[in-house]
């Protein structure tokens, strides 16, 4: 059983990597370096801050978009185009398929992020000419961004399990935007009375919290991230992804394939 998940994951990884996704890495690295050079010429003293902010934000946004498109593309499209038929006619359980897809996509995104991070560090070195201990914070920020990607992938799979490719992308992106404003949702909830407060607070907790995984500005200012936050965020991302994937598997298990 585990072996099948592994093969599905590997195959997904291979398919994703060959699917032009690789080219964005090169594009990104080039853009980053160019931006860094430009920035260095405009502003003095805060180049590092700008490079870190710009770089991490770009990695985050690029990555989320990739996560949505390959997450949706490699599952919803696969279902629509019947590539799936020959796989599912074999002794593969439907939930194994979903889980395998998740790991394959997650792996792709990790590799993706790794190369983009290299570009970022290169740009940073160009600007600051040295690496300090404070730059370790960048690694934490990148780790959190990867956790965001896992969450996004799980959500993309969730929507793909019952919706068309286009609608899945739209839903996934919408959930990302809402999740980014999770803090504001909590804020609004705290100002409401009674039942509305309970409802909005509940909703604020159900929505995937992308903002707590965003420590970009803290890291840009060399603000240390507490270990407890790292641990908690890891647990949160794992649990939430598990929830999304198991529901995706549940739905997919019952789905009549066109």
């Amino acid at each position: 059983m585990n072996a099948r998940i592994g093969w599905i994951a590997f195959n997904t990884f291979r398919e994703a990597v060959r699917d032009r996704v690789l080219y964005n890495l090169i594009a990104f690295a080039l853009i980053m370096t160019a931006a860094a050079v430009l920035v260095g010429q405009i502003s003095i003293q805060i180049e590092r801050i700008v490079v870190v902010n710009l770089g991490l934000t770009a990695i985050s946004i690029f990555g989320i978009i990739i996560a949505i498109f390959i997450g949706v593309g490699l599952v919803a499209k696969e279902i629509e185009r019947r590539t799936l038929y020959t796989v599912l006619s074999r002794p593969v359980r439907r939930w194994e398929f979903i889980v395998g897809k998740f790991f394959g996509l997650a792996g792709t995104l990790v590799v993706n992020t790794f190369f983009m991070a290299l570009g970022l560090f290169a740009a940073l070195f160009y600007v600051a000419h040295e690496f300090t201990r404070a730059d370790l914070g960048l690694v934490v920020a990148l780790y959190f961004i990867v956790l965001q990607f896992f969450l996004m992938t799980a959500l993309a799979l969730f929507f793909s399990s019952f919706s068309t490719p286009i609608m899945s992308s739209v839903f996934a992106f919408a959930v990302f935007v809402i999740g980014t404003f999770a803090d504001e949702l909590h804020g609004v909830a705290s100002m409401l009375p009674g039942v509305s407060k309970a409802l909005v607070t509940g909703f604020a907790y159900l929505v995937p919290n992308f903002s707590s995984l965003n420590v970009i500005s803290r890291v840009a200012h060399n603000d240390p991230i507490p270990f407890s936050l790292i641990g908690l965020n890891t647990v949160y991302a794992m649990l939430y992804s598990a929830a999304a994937i198991s529901v995706a598997a549940l739905i997919f298990d019952r789905r009549n394939l066109k």
């Binding site: 707590s212 647990v235 939430y240 198991s246 598997a249 549940l250």
Partner: peptide, 25 residues
């Protein structure tokens, strides 16, 4: 089906609890 539903419910519950802890930190 039962196992998946249980996993989904527990993970979601756990996620919400963790989210609260994260808010505190």
């Amino acid at each position: 089906t039962v196992v998946l539903a249980a996993v989904a419910a527990c993970s979601l519950g756990g996620a919400v609890a963790t989210a609260m802890a994260v808010e505190r930190v």
